[in-house]
């Protein structure tokens, strides 16, 4: 029995070490390879050089990614949280609720490149927007919608139902109860869900290939124009063999942004739990 316990313990510790090891190696490798590329110019200039990307920086890609991610979050969070609120507080039919859950599961399973194709067909071609930040952002928003919805639904279901009943018992409407009691109660989980969704969107390249990302563009100022994006820039630098140093530099910047936003989400959830 003692041996069995020790083996289970060893297995658990070894799995932990392996997971942490892989993550540490990944970060260390990218940081070691990419940190050298990071200069003030790299962060504040546009890509330059005979072959674009060999010199200069990645500012338009950073700003472009921020735009894509911002729109994706706005779109995904609004629809995701509203769907969750409907499911938990308004939907009376179990069948409809199951149907929504099924649709969300299917959406979550759609490959991101197919999501890109959907955005391309609907937004770029049918609506005639052309490749632009809005089309890319919305496509990414659709991609992270189920991601946010699942987390929001879980958070909403965890709200103390005694408080909700106490509010109803005073004659308050569902809308008022949701706005004043439910949403403030699960705000930390909602925010951290949206931030995690943002990280997911920030790193996704496939949905942007057909809908918004371009090889070179100025710092974006118009939502109806295409823009650069960090993952697409990284993809181009590597596949075209333009500059592996700058590719690692770009990856480094992306990982820093993801790390910082993830830490922010964790901190926010932790602070509000206290």
């Amino acid at each position: 029995m003692k041996l069995k316990t020790a083996l289970v313990k060893l297995w658990a510790v070894a799995s932990c070490c392996l997971t942490f090891g892989v993550i540490f190696f990944l970060f260390a490798y990218i940081f070691a390879k990419g940190a050298g590329a990071i200069t003030w110019e790299f962060l504040t200039e546009s890509p330059k050089g005979m072959i674009i990307g060999t010199e200069g920086g990645i500012l338009p890609a950073i700003v472009g990614s921020a735009w894509y991610t911002g729109i994706a979050c706005l779109f995904g969070a609004t629809l995701g949280i509203c769907t969750a609120v409907y499911q938990v507080y308004y939907c009376r039919s179990q069948r409809l609720s199951n149907a929504i859950a099924l649709v969300m599961q299917c959406m979550a399973g759609v490959p991101s490149i197919v999501m890109g194709l959907f955005g391309y067909t609907l937004l770029v071609l049918t609506l005639g927007w052309g490749k632009c930040i809005l089309a890319g952002g919305i496509t990414q928003g659709v991609m992270i919608l189920p991601f946010i919805q699942v987390r929001a639904e879980k958070a909403l279901r965890e709200v103390d139902q005694n408080l909700v009943r106490a509010s109803y018992a005073m004659g308050m409407s569902r809308a008022y109860t949701v706005r004043r009691i439910v949403l403030p109660q699960c705000l930390p989980q909602l925010v951290s869900g949206v931030i995690l969704g943002a990280c997911y969107a920030m790193g996704a390249c496939a949905p942007l290939i057909f809908t918004g990302a371009v090889i070179i563009a100025k710092v974006p100022k118009d939502l109806m124009k295409p823009a650069m994006a960090l993952p697409y820039h990284l993809y181009m630098l590597l596949t075209q063999g333009t500059s592996s140093v700058n590719a690692y530099g770009t990856a480094f910047v992306m990982m820093i942004i993801v790390l910082v936003t993830n830490s922010l989400a964790t901190w926010f959830a932790w602070r509000n739990k206290k």
Partner: peptide
């Protein structure tokens, strides 16, 4: 309307339910 009725007939529960505010 249920809301209108509950305004006239209030209710207090077994365990205190102060809102977290």
């Amino acid at each position: 309307e249920a809301e209108q009725l509950r305004r006239k007939v209030g209710m207090v529960f077994q365990t205190p339910t102060p809102f977290p505010m």
